[in-house]
Write a protein that binds this DNA or RNA. Structure first.
Lengths: 99, 99
DNA sequence: TAAAAGAACTTTGAATTTCAAAGTTAAAAC
DNA sequence: GTTTTAACTTTGAAATTCAAAGTTCTTTTA
């Protein structure tokens, strides 16, 4: 039997990573500065949480230029979306039926 | 203006504390061993997460005897319930409207 | 064309958090 | 009076998180 919290993914335990994933669930792609302002973190801190999600293959990174400015955008992978959805479902389940 | 993640409470960032609160949202009171088996943690570890929630005044602890056995139960406080509810609402909000 | 600036990191090191394991306490059972 | 059970507390090491400073690459400005 699987545990009541086995689908609560450790990767999403942190509010910043949770925030990044949430944003990427509803936006096809979001760039670095948008995430930075939404989540109110320093750039270094944000970068390392992004890296953690990339390492887990939950997001992908795309670098381009917009006009003359470098611009990095992020997207949730299919795996990322599925895993995050399971996380949310598990959360919901946990809250509803923990008896 | 409040941040998109300002109601995402740091206290609930951890899966075990999240689990404890979730269980206490739907059960008036739950005892130590029940939590321990639901959350699959060692007793020391569980005790320290419980303590963190008690320190924040999100739960209360009640010690009694059931028959001859000591039994400790936990309840979410009103503050705990409200704060957790806000956390969940913020989460939902974050996922829905982060654009 | 040399210096400054902006974007998006990477590195560093310290602070904080988490964990299991071992030790503790108090009552109960033997 | 020794052992057991419940529920911790303590300890110390490992892991995580963070801001700040440094880096790289490109563009802008002088």
């Amino acid at each position: 039997m699987t545990s009541i919290i086995s689908d609560i993914n450790k990767t999403f335990d942190h509010r910043i990573r949770l925030g990044i994933m949430s944003v990427l669930m509803v936006n096809d792609s979001v760039d670095f500065n948008r995430l930075k302002e939404l989540l109110e973190v320093t750039d270094g801190n944000l970068a390392s949480h992004i890296k953690a999600l990339e390492t887990s293959e939950y997001i992908t990174i795309r670098k381009q230029f917009i006009g003359k400015k470098p611009n990095t955008t992020y997207e949730a992978t299919l795996l990322g979306k599925q895993t995050f959805a399971r996380h949310l479902a598990a959360l919901e389940q946990l809250i509803k039926t923990s008896k």
